[in-house]
Design a protein around this nucleic acid. Structure first.
Lengths: 231, 231
DNA sequence: CGGATGGATTCATCAGATGATTAGGTCTAG
DNA sequence: CTAGACCTAATCATCTGATGAATCCATCCG
């Protein structure tokens, strides 16, 4: 095992056994390197790796700190890896995303009384999508994609499970290019997608678990069908 | 943005646009550092970060290579991050795990004709679990936990979606300590868990999608109930 | 009392040197 | 001619030292 791997293990072990907690500051490079018995170079490589993973955060001049370790931090690096793999496994990624989003819609519906801030934000995302489609200069595809991502993100958050929301973000945030191609190649697709989104949100806000589940599932299956037809 | 982040972005971009593919070798450190306009130290930090993420693999004396980018490589770093967060979000992690494993059991049942190698391996894991419980020196808890992990792993693989299997591994592989505590504190728990496992596998092998789904879900809910009672 | 300032602290980056490991060619024995 | 040991070059791993940039904090001045 390399020195760097050892650094990663030792630091994660310190977090796991409570010697380091969210927000805590790590010793300065020189001291920590000496404690772990490695050079500053090796220490820095390990710290940087944990920084990319979202576990640590270094600020020049200030020090190195443990992050909040929120599940949302998981989305970044996971999304990166998913994106790299989606070339050969796009269908599999999307299938998993559909499982998670379907359950998220059901959970959001079950928890929708009264509607919270996330569902309000989801509704605003749909209004923004409608505005993007009715613009004077034709459809603003970039804004439409952003609204689409925002809608799914807020529904996921409304489910009340931050780990679930983070995974959905990681799996779903990388299909924007496909959605763009979809909107460009099928003029009706945008309007249909908006209708489906509104139906999903209506079911969620009504607290209708079954309809929320089925409509979200149907919506994502329609997307999968389109992606399959592209090939 | 730091030099290291730029290195990560540039290398991932090279993979995304096809300039680098699975198995390809990267230029030597000196050349790549010069190409990217950074020092070897910064380059190494970026390469190391991607190595921890499972995207690159460096072998001393041989060179740096792009990995196969299989979804299973995703499990390692994701599992690490999940473990670090599971302190405060264990219930949420387990809820997501239950969603995924329930669908995996259903998919495995739908694809179970004829039973493949993964289901055979799942059955062998249950035999090993039974042997671990009937040992002369009492229950071998370590072997039992390993069998438990193996069973869930193979059922997930039998679903035929490698991304799903990788996520299940990442989310489920870190609750071994809890299972140990469960087995130690509730003598009947091990036997009950084995019965539930056998019932799940029977439904999967029969191709009974509904029973496979319900039994897996019930099994994992039972585990969640136990974990909640601990607190 | 509040803001500006300057120094100390800390991370960021670079450069160079040495060791460890691997790959591949070469040489020798059979 | 072949098979094996051996040797050399290539490459990554690690360490050390130095310089720059950003931040923090105590001090000083208005």
């Amino acid at each position: 095992m390399s020195r760097t791997d050892e650094v990663v293990d030792r630091i994660t072990a310190m977090i796991l056994d409570g010697r380091l907690g969210p927000g805590d500051r790590l010793p300065v490079e020189k001291d920590l390197a000496e404690t772990l018995g490695v050079s500053r170079s090796s220490l820095r490589e390990g710290v940087r790796a944990l920084s990319v993973l979202g576990v640590l955060e270094t600020r020049q001049g200030a020090g190195t700190y443990v992050t909040t370790l929120d599940p949302s931090l998981l989305a970044g690096p996971l999304g990166l890896v998913v994106e790299l793999q989606s070339a050969g496994h796009a269908a599999h990624v999307h299938a998993v995303r559909r499982m998670l989003e379907t359950e998220a819609a059901a959970l959001a519906a079950a928890a929708a009384h009264p509607p919270g801030a996330e569902l309000m934000a989801a509704g605003e995302a749909l209004d923004a999508a409608a505005a993007a489609m009715d613009g004077a200069a034709g459809t603003d595809h970039d804004a439409l994609i952003a609204s689409d991502l925002a809608f799914h993100h807020h529904v996921a958050r409304a489910a009340g499970n931050p780990v679930l929301a983070a995974l959905i973000d990681a799996l779903g945030g990388r299909t924007a290019r496909h959605r763009l191609r979809r909107g460009l190649s099928e003029p009706d697709a945008d309007a249909r997608s908006l209708r489906e989104h509104r139906a999903i949100l209506a079911a969620v806000v009504d607290g209708d678990v079954d309809r929320a589940r089925v409509r979200m599932s149907a919506h994502l299956i329609a997307v999968e069908d389109f992606l399959n037809d592209l090939e």
